[in-house]
Design a protein around this nucleic acid. Structure first.
Lengths: 141, 141
DNA sequence: GTATGTGCAAACTTTTTGCACTTCG
DNA sequence: CGAAGTGCAAAAAGTTTGCACATAC
């Protein structure tokens, strides 16, 4: 994934967020790592270029990014939070043998779901979005 | 939900697990609470009848139950683990306004998915099960 | 009787918080 | 300059661990 700093700066501006080196480097790391990193993965990754960044800052920045829709939290059944730089709706393949979570994009599937829930609505509940957790095993694992 | 102690005891026996009062009361609590309780919800619930149970024991029992397929962990984007007493495949409605997670059962949907993934398989990945995270808002919230 | 399970308290991990200091715009 | 953001260190919250004791079978 090609990551342009200029794009990242624009995203912050569009949301009215101040552009700070910490925010830029954190969002850049999420895009580069692009395998649903944990806060720790991110810290490790940016320590090279930014050794003085504080853990608290990283968590605060991540929270800000989530609130502003620049990243998403990924649901897992571990007690470590993971983050996703892709904000368009997509699904996740969870490996049952290791911690790998891969993205899965499938427009046919999204259309299928859209049609299904157009006919059949859930009473007392208004759907905002649907994400599939597809659990299984990667051949490589 | 009617919870029969005898059923719970049988489940433990079938898995070769010793029947202890702690295990019985914990599984019973999960069935009774049936709203995807946290470890804390469970402890609170059983303290009335079982005031001396240790936190560590509750976590160990929960882990044993998960390993033996008697309960499931529920994926959330909070850092608190939640548990589900329903082990058959079903989907979840996540409220975007509060912490409510409701079960959603839809056989038509399951058939739709089965057909979709029969035709279209994901290369390098063998699907074990699929759970939908349906995010939205309950009218009551 | 023996393998398995529990209680307890301490430790560990991840995340949050408060406040003085700094920086962006 | 002023509002917003950061660093730091302490603490909170949730979970795990190790070991002596207790219990199920």
């Amino acid at each position: 994934m090609k990551v342009l700093i200029e794009d990242i700066r624009n995203k912050f501006s569009q949301k009215g967020l101040k552009i700070t080196p910490q925010r830029v480097v954190i969002l850049e790391a999420i895009y580069k790592l692009n395998n649903h990193p944990t806060a720790d993965n991110i810290i490790e990754n940016i320590r090279e270029s930014h050794p003085n960044i504080a853990t608290g800052t990283v968590y605060k920045v991540l929270e800000t990014l989530v609130e502003n829709g620049l990243i998403r939290k990924v649901k897992t059944d571990k007690d470590i939070m993971r983050y996703d730089g892709i904000i368009e709706i997509h699904h996740h393949l969870y490996c049952s043998k290791c911690d790998l979570i891969e993205d899965y994009i499938d427009e046919d599937l999204d259309n299928l779901l859209k049609n299904h829930f157009k006919d059949k609505n859930i009473k007392g509940f208004k759907i905002e979005d649907i994400v599939l957790q597809i659990r299984g095993a990667f051949d490589k694992c």
